[in-house]
Design a protein around this nucleic acid. Structure first.
Lengths: 169, 169
DNA sequence: CACAATTAAATTGTTCTCAACTGAATTTTG
DNA sequence: CAAAATTCAGTTGAGAACAATTTAATTGTG
């Protein structure tokens, strides 16, 4: 018995909660915030299966490309600082997916490298990527153009605020 | 000298880190993840000034509209569960911004209401909203259409996966 | 060379997020 | 009405995120 789902405590699917007088900036930010959570909820069961969290998955994506990176390099790619990465990398180390070794040339740096197990895991992520692709369910072109808009906005927000009235960029 | 900004430990502004073979779904998700962080970094100094975090600000936005809400209602609007909200509301209570009282009719529920101080705070958020509007720096129409796209995607991701091949929605 | 400034990583403390569980209250059913 | 199921809020534990600080190593400058 019990086809009784209620599997997900039914959060998500909120669409514009503050109906009345909110400025569009607040609504846009909330839309991003909600979408980010929705992505997380979508990735989570897939990544759970691999024993990974989403930020851990991002670190591995970076390492599958570069093989070896310093903590700083990873932080620059993902926009994270050592306060986030140090414990995260320690967990990936504990899981046997990466190694952490001080650089001989510059002992301040720590080189993060994939272990065999970490490299091998790449073979398993195809399913995850397929599932996410399905879940998004929009065309590649749509997804790409949306991505470009989001990246442009990210960059605009990351600028040291040229205030307005700056020359057209 | 020192036009050398690097003001912000220079995180943010990352634009497509995984250059080579990533599926668009991964890149789109990462773009959302990055933008969400960028929004947070933009809001943070503004909200710090009011002694609020972004999720706390969202709760207050909801309460300024509805005056009184149960924990569950707030959770439904924001997509958060009691594990997140209970301690958050306790902090807003400690800060003197909301009150928490068991409902007489249904003692399972807790009614969250604004205090005078909480209501008064609404007068101060105009500056925050103005600053965010400036930071986004795109037209109201652009922001609105982007918001609509994001909300649609959020909803798609929050569906119980009708797999593909479902009838056109 | 010595001292100062800078850089890299780690640590600490606060908050957010969610899963899983607990406890109390309400509703449903037999 | 009594037992079972459900609902609501809270707690616990793990992980993420960031500010601020600490420690060690490197670079710069006198």
């Amino acid at each position: 018995m019990e086809t009784m789902m209620a599997t997900e405590t039914d959060q998500g699917a909120q669409t514009a909660p503050f109906s009345v007088p909110l400025p569009i900036s607040d609504m846009l930010c909330f839309a991003v915030y909600s979408l980010s959570h929705a992505f997380n909820r979508t990735y989570k069961p897939l990544l759970d299966h691999l024993g990974l969290t989403y930020p851990q998955y991002l670190v591995l994506l970076a390492l599958w490309q570069h093989k070896v990176m310093t903590v700083k390099q990873i932080g620059e790619q993902l926009g994270l600082d050592s306060g986030t990465l140090s414990p995260l990398l320690k967990r990936l180390d504990s899981a046997g997916l990466v190694s952490r070794t001080r650089d001989r040339k510059d002992e301040r740096q720590v080189n993060i490298a994939l272990t065999e197990k970490g490299e091998a895991l790449q073979a398993d992520v195809g399913d995850v990527q397929m599932a996410i692709g399905d879940a998004i369910g929009c065309s590649t072109d749509e997804a790409r153009s949306l991505r470009i808009v989001l990246e442009a906005l990210t960059q605009k927000l990351s600028q040291p605020e040229p205030s307005e009235a700056a020359d057209a960029v």
